[in-house]
Write a protein that binds this DNA or RNA. Structure first.
Lengths: 339, 339
DNA sequence: TTGTATGCGTTATCAG
DNA sequence: CTGATAACGCATACAA
């Protein structure tokens, strides 16, 4: 790698001082320089293939124009759309997005956070809201850096949160099932230490009680296909016979549930109806096509980014909680209750 | 945001010179400092919550310890595993991975590259191998920065490439179909300007000719479900009646094909068999479960990262081409030819 | 083993 | 409108 071209090289070729080059090359200060010299500088820069050094600039301005995004699992299809939403609004403002994937691993999470902090990101968007493990949120609090929580983490650390309306989603799902004649419904929830799990489980309990349907809740060990497959054990072995409908903690759990149902010789939706959560990409291509609660994932990401930007510009965070509306997408995994 | 703690603050508290702090905090030079002072420094650093400034360090060392990864579409499920493979080996070496998603948009691609270059990434991994549009590769060439191509882009710019064995994958797929009795097979390939499309299409032509089966190739406008859905037009309307089997350019195209088949009242695999390509996550959860060519995606990413690291350390790139073995995963989307 | 001095490439402040 | 100069936070060659 040959030595990179610096602002000094450009200055020499353009026969001006490097301060002038700096002014010429920054949109902010461009109008402070003579049109003629501006041209000369631009030409010189192009000729030399000058690429400004963001590290030097950041060091000087103490802004990296960089945002750190920490997510627990890139392989979960709900995250790409969220990231896309984030990037969409951030890139438009000249920010670069640094995505760190932690595989839901605590120590990775913490070291990713640390690494991003070292890079002096101007803010964080965190999608890792476990209730029991406040480490990252606490660290963020201690580091006194702008943070927006996404999707999970209601009320943690007093940071703003953007998410879909979990309670209403559950209401919609349950209403749909009841309308189809289901009277025995089990909620195959996510792990108890996710904040979303709690919101949804509480909403389920409340709605099911109010509607007067027989109900129960089982907790999967993760928000994955495997965990969904496994939690079916508990549900199938549960007292009171097999429920006629299941509300899953998310679409992956729903997929695991369906896999297991099939393995047990039960058909979906003829024998058991299943409702997912999130409406992740490809939900309609599974078998059966998933009836699920649609989350505006892209918009959630975009809104989080906007909130963060506002916080950065204002110099302080509003403790807003933005809840975006959800809707029910009825596809093939739900049907009339078997009588 | 209060002023950040610097190495000077630590030095003052520990009552040593900042140079000593620097030495104490870097693994490389740690043994140059007295055990006692080391302790003092560490304590002071912890006490103050010192976080080293990567920009300042990078500016001084002219290494950002950062790798840029440019991918065309985060929503395509083949990329998360690849990214994971990349991160796995890079993080172990202390590198941070900057992922830029371009949505297959030329100008976004170029500006993402530029942005990464400004950040002085130590190298690039590019997954954007279109044949007609050399811009990024050319820019990379001009910038004289270490690059490894991934998945696509055979032979572009003389950069190393890591990919799966496309030709062999096609051979496996075709052999499987022929064994099932298919004699009229169409290749629903990707866009003509992807290098993978060419390798696969050529292999298909060769293998089908050699096997003596009736065959044809149609080109989808993208590697997406929609493009797969649309290219079915051409195939269904094609002369010589409907083929009994299709080899898709990738799994998404396969999904689109199947959607369309269903829309036309054709069943898969009873009426038409479909083979996908990549074995993307969830391939087994679709309906029917996808028979597809398995690509070792994670390993492809990991190998690309290793190759890049070697190039960076050596100061020059080997022009290696690494081709990883593929295999056929037979699931539900292929069956005996209708006679 | 530790301190001193310098420079990495920018931008901001201050003169002119 | 432009030039000179300092400073951002750190690592390192050199001196002690």
């Amino acid at each position: 790698m040959p030595r990179r071209v610096t602002i000094d090289d450009v200055a020499r070729l353009a026969e001006v001082h490097k301060a002038t080059v700096s002014r010429a090359l920054n949109a902010q200060t461009r109008d402070q320089v003579n049109v003629e010299t501006l041209k000369r500088v631009k030409r010189a820069a192009r000729q030399l293939g000058y690429v400004p050094n963001a590290m030097a600039r950041g060091l000087r301005t103490s802004r990296s124009m960089t945002i750190g995004v920490i997510i627990p699992d890139l392989m979960n299809p709900i995250f790409p759309p969220i990231i896309r939403g984030i990037e969409h609004v951030l890139q438009a403002q000249g920010y670069t997005v640094l995505v760190a994937n932690t595989d839901s691993h605590d120590d990775v999470e913490i070291s990713a956070f640390e690494s991003l902090l070292q890079r002096r990101v101007d803010g964080f968007i965190l999608a890792t809201g476990r209730l029991d493990d406040h480490t990252v949120v606490d660290e963020a609090k201690a580091a006194d850096v702008p943070v927006v929580l996404v999707n999970r983490g209601a009320g943690m650390g007093g940071f703003p949160l953007v998410s879909g309306d979990n309670a209403h989603g559950i209401d919609l799902a349950l209403a749909h099932l009841i309308e189809l004649g289901h009277r025995r419904v089990v909620h195959a929830a996510g792990p108890t230490n996710f904040s979303t799990t709690r919101s949804r489980a509480e909403a389920f309990e409340a709605a099911a009680t109010k509607a007067g349907v027989e109900h129960d809740t089982s907790y999967a060990s993760g928000l994955t296909i495997e965990a969904g497959f496994d939690v079916a054990d508990e549900i199938l072995a549960g007292g009171g016979g097999c429920p006629t409908a299941l509300v899953a903690g998310n679409d992956l759990v729903a997929l695991g549930l369906i896999r297991r149902l099939r393995a047990e010789g039960l058909r979906c939706p003829e024998d058991v109806s299943v409702v997912g959560f999130n409406d992740m990409p490809f939900a309609e291509d599974f078998w059966p096509p998933l009836t699920t609660v649609h989350m505006p994932l892209r918009e959630i990401g975009a809104e989080a980014a906007r909130l963060l930007l506002r916080g950065i510009d204002a110099g302080e965070q509003e403790a807003a909680t933005v809840t975006l509306p959800v809707s029910l997408v009825v596809r093939g995994s739900t049907g009339p209750a078997r009588t």
